[in-house]
Design a protein around this nucleic acid. Structure first.
Length: 234
DNA sequence: AAGAATCTCAACCGCTATGGC
DNA sequence: AGCCATAGCGGTTGAGATTCT
């Protein structure tokens, strides 16, 4: 697969692709003790990795419940829809898509969905231009409602990494009651979408994708996690 | 068949947010 | 209030896989 050349940083910590052995150590440790401190974890788990690398590996590939690849049409539509509203807030988008990680969604967006979305937008723009005379300017669309929300929250939300010096009072003023009411309607689709995307996700048995593991590994994981295993390769 | 171009995605990097002291 | 450590986020990289010429 696409792997990085293993190398070491200046502190002698390993970088690059994770081996099955390293994965095993990490899973084993977290399963027993949890991730109480990412910086110290690799030392206790016997890994020559930085905590950041361990955290990423766990969150993106090793933790249970992760789906891998094989995006459904519904999931892709949801990503496009959410991205149209949230922009590049990948973690927020991922939070609405059980089993998907922000990194995976980001990658899928850049490799597959961006083009599709752009095509969709250009078609939408054309039709908007042709319909512009018919539309009432006072009637907010789904998208404009969300833009109102974004503009109201972007400057004061902790989500924003470019937060301004606005005070909370100012933010309250901007995020008017009208916007908040629009917001309620706006976000109502999320719950519906979540059901569409995940199916009966919350009712599904606790499953772990082991398709990346060598043939000898599933038994180990099955024992460690005490879960049913699945693989999209099968 | 082979080299070039493009695609894919795991992993890293740098930055900000947050919490504890 | 200010500093420091840690967690988390989004952008970017880079090398193998795939497709094109």
């Amino acid at each position: 697969m696409m792997v990085r050349t293993p190398s070491c940083d200046k502190n002698g910590l390993k970088k690059g692709t994770w081996t099955a052995e390293e994965d095993k150590k990490l899973v084993d440790y977290i399963t027993r003790y949890g991730h109480w401190n990412w910086r110290l974890l690799p030392k206790f788990a016997g890994l020559a990795r930085c905590g950041k690398s361990c955290r990423l590996r766990w969150l993106n590939y090793l933790r249970p419940n992760l789906k891998r690849g094989n995006y459904t049409e519904e999931e892709e539509e949801t990503i496009i829809k959410l991205h149209r509203r949230l922009g590049n807030r990948w973690s927020t988008i991922a939070a609405r898509m059980p089993g998907r990680t922000d990194n995976e969604i980001k990658n899928h967006w850049h490799t597959n969905l961006k083009k599709r979305s752009q095509q969709h937008n250009s078609v939408a723009t054309e039709s908007q231009i042709s319909n512009s005379n018919d539309q009432s300017p006072t009637e907010p669309t789904e998208d404009t409602a969300f833009q109102n929300f974004n503009s109201a929250t972007q400057d004061c939300s902790p989500l924003s990494q470019h937060s301004s010096s606005s005070t909370s009072t100012e933010c309250t003023t901007v995020a008017s009651t009208e916007n908040l009411l629009l917001l309620e309607d706006e976000f109502a689709f999320w719950d519906a979408d979540t059901d569409l995307v995940s199916g009966n996700f919350w009712l599904e048995p606790y499953m772990l994708d082991i398709s990346y593991l060598p043939a000898s590994e599933p038994e180990y994981f099955s024992q460690v996690f005490d879960v049913e295993l699945w693989s999209h390769d099968t």
